[in-house]
Simulated assay, not measured.
Amino acid sequence: MSQLPPPVRRAQPPQASTVDQYENGPFTFRPASKDGQRARLSLQGPSGSGKTWTGLSIAAGFAEGERFGVIDTERGAASLYIDDIPGARFDTLPMRRYDPRDLIKALAAAAQVGYPVVMVDSLSHYWKGADGTLDQVDKAASKYGGNKFAGWKDGGELQTDMIEALMAYPGHIVATMRASTKWVLEENDRGQKVPVDKGVLAEQRKGIEFEFGVAAELNQQNQLRFIKSRCPAFRGLKLDQPDGARDIAKPYLDWLRAGAKEIDTAAWVDQASSATATPDSLLALYRDVEAASALATPLMHPETGQPTSLGAYIRERGTALKTAQ
């Protein structure tokens, strides 16, 4: 009986890791702080309630004398008030189509300029305007045999990405939204069903107000009511013809800054772009940005000049350097 030769062990080629280090990081708790937090405020109201005027006044207060940016979907309405609102020094970007991806591009352009505040007047257009989210859902539905429910998979992602970019802008945000009065039939003391004014309903995705740190509604008498506030100074507060800078911007900023320090997003971009960056340093930077909820921060790609996000840029550089190694 012949004897078989002993087995030969051959070195196996290294296998590429299937674990994405960026997406599958550790869950790490950190001390809570308000460091780097920015104002996120929405104003909703019907036509004639003073949304643009009040929003500009608040934005001017947040800007504290610096120029700020206005993403204008209201056919130049903001520019009409340039001489009427004390301290309001701003530039406008007129928009004529309302694809949610265009708002992300506009925010990236604003971040590149370095505006400390951006006002979106109004956010409603990116929901139900031409090429807005609802249009995107209809377009996507055609890929699924007209199934609108399936269309929300694509259209909903565009809406989510837009809101993420808005919330991660490296400055303060003021967003106005068109709204209609919400009437509910209720029984009065005579047993009759009568319509009762229950506030206003924003023309945006349901629950949009929960995305903002402070949300308020205006009526046609320019009376403001806070409907949601993380800032204790505004809870349950109503203001008659408010001075946006004095009554809203100042107490909001005072609360955000109490015991907190500023975070310079530009420093993160510089670290990501550094010639001395390594895969390990970029992964650590990604974790810091992730902990600050700033991965979606919009910016123009330093090499291509195209809109991207801070998280995507760090990840791109880190992956490229690791591949090169």
Rank of each mutant, 00 (worst) to 15 (best):
K206Y: 11
E187A: 03
A111I: 01
Q136Y: 05
P170F: 06
M95H: 09
M95W: 02
D102W: 09
E164Q: 15
Y144D: 02
G145L: 10
L93R: 13
M162H: 05
A141P: 05
P94W: 02
G114S: 09
A175V: 09
D189W: 09
V194L: 12
G146V: 03
V120I: 15
G132C: 07
R101N: 09
S142I: 10
L134D: 07
A111L: 03
T181R: 14
L185T: 09
P100M: 01
A140Q: 03
W152S: 00
A111R: 12
F149P: 00
D102C: 06
L134E: 11
A110F: 05
Y98Q: 05
E187R: 15
D197V: 04
M162L: 01
E203Q: 07
V174S: 08
A111W: 00
Y144E: 11
R97E: 15
A130K: 13
P195L: 05
L107H: 01
G114C: 05
S180N: 07
D161C: 04
Q159N: 13
T176A: 11
L123R: 04
A109Q: 13
Y115L: 10
S142R: 14
E164N: 15
R89K: 14
T176N: 11
E186N: 11
E186W: 00
D135T: 13
P94H: 03
G156V: 04
S180Y: 08
V120R: 00
I173K: 00
G207Q: 02
A168W: 02
P94Q: 08
S180Q: 14
P170A: 12
D135R: 01
K139P: 00
P170W: 12
A179H: 01
E187W: 05
A141H: 10
G207K: 06
D135Q: 13
M167D: 12
A175R: 06
V118M: 03
M177S: 11
K148I: 14
P100D: 12
K128L: 13
D197G: 02
A110N: 00
K128W: 12
P116C: 03
P170T: 09
R89Q: 12
L158W: 06
A179P: 04
K206R: 14
M119I: 04
V118F: 07
R190E: 15
Y126S: 03
P100Q: 07
V200Y: 15
S180F: 09
E203G: 02
L134V: 15
A150E: 12
G191T: 08
Y169G: 10
A109E: 14
L93C: 11
D131W: 06
A130Q: 13
G155M: 09
A140G: 10
Q192G: 06
